[in-house]
Design a binder for these strands. Structure first.
Length: 560
RNA sequence: UGGCCUAUGGUGUAAUUGGCAACACUACUGGUUUUGGUCCAGUCAUUCUAGGUUCGAGUCCUAGUAGGCCAACCA
């Protein structure tokens, strides 16, 4: 596949530069390193596309590595969900790894560090250690335990490992520099005691390594060439390199960490912690609620893997702050679905329409194309009878010239059917229109080739035959937050911006062919938008999620 | 008061490394259309500011300004 444009992002420039300076292409290796403490979201999708995209571009292996060093938060459920999401996006990892695979190696290296006087056991409370840490503008002070003997450190660390100490009693710290301008270099913790079962190693360990000690060494073990992470880890790079220096064998490849800005999406939050909060507070119905910006939520909403990958490619990768408008994500959904989603008829807000000159007992099946964008999609038949449903907003008693739809005395075409003319309408006692009476021109049948069928009328309506229609639940979604950047408002919690109307459930009428649909199927409801069969759907009761509406020029005209 | 990072249309990303600021989205104009969809054509920028180097600066230099990040036994 030739890229239309050959513009490179800054990460690719770095790799190209490395290649130019003697790096062998065979040495390139990447990794996607999620922590299994939540579901993946659209921001992760961007990172997945970056890392796996690099793998594809350079024909290099990409590992899926679970950063599972904190059994207090991590669960197998998340591991499974993450694997499913990456696979669904269409990527294949080289090997499945776990940081926990390296616990023994990490431990052995830690012992080496102690022997080399590069690490020590600190036996203070976390409060005491925090108070000694200093501030960004003031240096910290040394721990009273900083100069313990190697023998004592070794013995204590062994006891920690053997479970002889309570959580919090001791930690292993790297001995670096308590007055570094980088707070992370002020003797960072490498290990803490934690009497918690781990989802993979169970109770084998009661000390667990910290992120900084684990991540770079894991990259080194896997011989990852370029370790890409988000900007908030930029300050960690110095420590990443320091830890690497302690164990590196010069004959092996030295991984390098580079940082990119996380992608923020408007009108939502992209943070596992905040998404968890939405789930636990019941604002949404789970991680895969179609309103969630999680990969599983987008999948259930009806997004395709392609739409998400194209989105990620389009927004690219850089180092500056950003807030990507959700309309760009929606564009990619439409773009992909337009080419692939079969068109069907579905009336969301039904208004009954009677064709008074259409025989009472007559019904006919009309040919209709499945997708005008895809000839090979073929056609199907839909039933017409004397009584049909049209969309409420498609009829007005009177309207100006800009209204192309049905009005009294006006004509309109029923999609793939006949031209009808509105003669009269019926209202209830409140003045609401409850029925429209029309006549049709029997010679105007679509595709019949008659002079009448070739007549141009301005409007075309979608419709379904009353007696053939099937009822379906349709879930309409709106943005989850009313603010475009809910979590960056000063003095306001993001929960204050929740849109109370983000979900609307209605009963619609859809064409009978949809009876055969199954969960995950995606359709375009003609003139309305893209819809996806929900996992709650069954033969008894069809349930559709609205993925995204069609572009609506008419709505814009009305606004003026 | 310290350190690190970043500034290009309303939004996101480019710019052959000093040579006509490009692509996509959004918005707005028109055209086509049996989806007010799709498709097609067009419009929308003092590259944060001020100086400097240069025939030539988004790119290099100097000084500012603005924003983000950094003190969890989280990752």
């Amino acid at each position: 596949m030739g890229e239309a444009s050959e513009s490179l992002n800054f990460i690719e420039h770095i790799i190209e530069e490395d290649l130019k300076n003697g790096y062998s292409k065979e040495d390139l290796r990447f990794r996607f390193p999620p922590e299994p403490n939540g579901y993946l979201h659209i921001g992760h999708a961007s990172s997945i596309c970056l890392n796996f995209g690099l793998g594809l571009r350079y024909n290099a292996p990409v590992n899926l590595r679970f950063d599972d060093t904190n059994p207090a938060k991590e669960e197998q459920e998340y591991v499974d969900a993450i694997k499913k999401d990456v696979e669904w996006l269409g990527f294949q990892w080289d090997t499945e790894r776990y940081a926990s695979d390296y616990f023994q190696q990490l431990y052995d290296w830690a012992v080496d560090l102690i022997k080399n006087g590069k690490a020590y056991v600190d036996s203070q409370s976390s409060e005491d250690m925090a108070s000694q840490k200093g501030t960004p503008t003031q240096p910290g002070i040394d721990s009273p335990y900083r100069n313990r003997s190697v023998e004592e450190n070794l013995a204590l660390f062994q006891e920690m490992k053997d479970g002889k100490h309570e959580a919090g009693a001791h930690v292993l710290r790297a001995k670096i520099n308590m007055s570094s301008s980088n707070m992370l270099m002020r003797d960072p913790i490498m290990y803490r005691v934690l009497h918690k079962a781990h989802h993979r190693t169970n109770t084998d360990w009661c000390i667990y390594p910290m992120y900084d000690w684990t991540h770079g060494e894991s990259d080194y073990i896997e011989q990852v060439s370029h370790s890409l992470c988000t900007l908030e880890f930029a300050m960690h790079r110095e420590l990443y390199d320091w830890f690497l220096d302690q164990v590196i064998d010069k004959s092996k490849l030295r991984p390098k960490q580079r940082e990119f800005a996380r992608r923020n999406l408007s009108h939502t939050v992209v943070s596992k912690r905040k998404l968890l909060q939405l789930v636990e507070s019941g604002v949404v119905n789970g991680w895969d609620d179609p309103r969630m910006p999680t990969i599983s939520g987008l999948r259930r909403r009806g997004y395709t893997p392609n739409s998400i990958k194209n989105f990620a490619d389009t927004i690219g990768i850089a180092k500056r702050e950003n807030l990507i408008d959700v309309s760009l994500l929606e564009f990619h959904a439409r773009e992909d679905l337009n080419k692939t989603a079969p068109r069907v008829m579905g009336v969301l807000n039904p208004l009954k329409l009677v064709i008074t000159n259409y025989p009472e007992d007559k019904e006919e099946w009309l040919d209709i194309e499945n997708n005008p964008e895809d000839e090979s999609a073929g056609s199907r038949q839909i039933p017409l009878s004397r009584e049909i449903y049209i969309e409420q907003e498609d009829f007005k008693e009177e309207a100006n010239r800009k209204f192309f739809r049905l009005k009294l005395g006006g004509e309109v075409r029923l999609k793939s059917g006949y031209i009808i003319k509105a003669e009269s309408c019926t209202k209830d006692t409140d003045g609401n229109i409850i029925e429209v009476q029309c006549t049709y021109d029997p010679k105007s049948k679509s595709g019949s080739g008659t002079e009448e069928s070739l007549r141009k009328v301005k409007g075309t309506l979608h419709w379904v035959s009353c007696k053939h229609a099937i009822e379906a639940e349709v879930r309409l979604y709106d943005r989850l937050f009313t603010n475009e950047s809910p979590d960056s408002q000063k003095d306001k919690d993001f929960m204050e911006f929740i849109n109370p109307n983000s979900l609307e459930v209605i009963t619609a009428f859809v064409e009978p062919s949809l009876q055969e649909s199954s969960p995950g199927d995606r359709f375009q409801f003609q003139r309305m938008g893209y819809f996806c069969v929900d996992s709650d759907s069954s033969g008894e009761k069809l349930v559709f999620n609205k993925t995204v509406g069609l572009r609506d020029t008419w709505a814009k005209i009305q606004q003026k």
